[in-house]
Computed example of a mutant assay.
Amino acid sequence: MRLKDVIVGAVMAGAGITYLRMTAALPQRDGVDAGTVPTILASMMIALGLIELVGALRRPAATKAEIRAASSGLVTVGLTLLLIAGFIAALRPFGFPIATAIYLFLQFLVLTPQSAKRSVPLYAGLAIASSVLIFATFRYAFDLLLPAGPLVAWLN
């Protein structure tokens, strides 16, 4: 576990340094310019990478219980990646609102700890409401079209 944290910290700091070097090529002016936000983001990325790296090096090696707990987290990550792949595959045939509602509902189930009570009606309501709100915001407020799928017949 500690080795992974060291690698993550080093890669993150390295990516931040690379990103900072790339921002140096942007045109510069006095005050706030096109490179200001990327420079801030790169600096934060380097700082966070170094914090992770130092923390990982100072942390003692993981115990067997911690390794077991981390392996259960890998199952959650694997299921999440499968759900994301399924969401991408479902976007075209089902459209954004339906695919997003299904994805969010299943993701809520995956992310609920085993020891917690699962509230299926609450998860379904949140998934549907969130999907409709996001779709309506992008379609009507931002005027950006998301795939509507079979719902296109009911939209103007």
Rank of each mutant, 00 (worst) to 15 (best):
V6S: 04
V8M: 07
V8T: 09
A10H: 01
V11I: 11
M12V: 14
A13Y: 05
A13I: 02
A15P: 15
A15I: 10
G16R: 04
I17E: 03
I17N: 10
T18Y: 08
T18S: 13
T18M: 12
Y19S: 15
Y19H: 15
Y19G: 15
Y19D: 15
Y19M: 14
L20V: 00
L20E: 03
R21H: 06
R21G: 09
M22H: 09
T23F: 15
A25K: 06
A25C: 01
P27S: 07
Q28F: 00
Q28H: 01
R29D: 14
D30Q: 06
G31E: 08
V32Y: 06
A34V: 00
V37G: 03
T39Q: 14
A42Y: 03
G49Q: 04
L50N: 13
I51W: 03
I51S: 08
I51Y: 03
L53D: 11
L53G: 05
G55T: 08
A56K: 06
L57K: 12
R58E: 13
R59Y: 13
P60G: 11
P60Y: 01
A61S: 09
A61P: 02
A62V: 05
T63K: 15
K64N: 05
E66K: 01
E66H: 02
E66I: 00
I67Q: 14
A69S: 09
A69C: 11
A70G: 04
A70Y: 01
S71K: 05
S71T: 10
S72N: 05
S72Q: 05
L74R: 08
L74Q: 03
L74P: 00
L74N: 07
L74F: 01
V77S: 12
G78P: 05
L82W: 00
L83W: 09
I84Q: 05
I84H: 03
A85D: 04
A85E: 06
G86T: 10
A89P: 13
A89Y: 15
L91D: 06
P93V: 10
P93T: 07
P93N: 06
F94V: 10
G95L: 13
F96E: 02
I98H: 03
A99M: 08
A101M: 08
A101E: 13
Y103C: 10
F105R: 07
F105H: 05
Q107T: 02
F108Y: 11
L109M: 04
V110H: 03
L111W: 04
P113Y: 07
P113R: 06
Q114P: 03
R118Q: 03
S119L: 06
V120I: 04
L122Y: 00
Y123N: 14
Y123K: 08
Y123M: 12
A124F: 10
A124H: 10
A124I: 03
A124P: 02
G125D: 12
A127K: 11
A127E: 06
A127G: 11
A127H: 10
A129R: 12
A129M: 13
S130L: 09
S131G: 09
L133R: 08
I134G: 12
I134F: 15
F135W: 11
F135M: 11
F135S: 02
A136P: 01
A136W: 14
T137V: 12
F138Q: 14
R139Y: 10
Y140C: 14
Y140Q: 15
A141N: 07
A141L: 12
F142A: 02
F142S: 03
F142W: 08
D143Y: 04
G149E: 05
P150A: 14
P150K: 15
L151E: 09
L151Q: 12
L151T: 06
V152G: 14
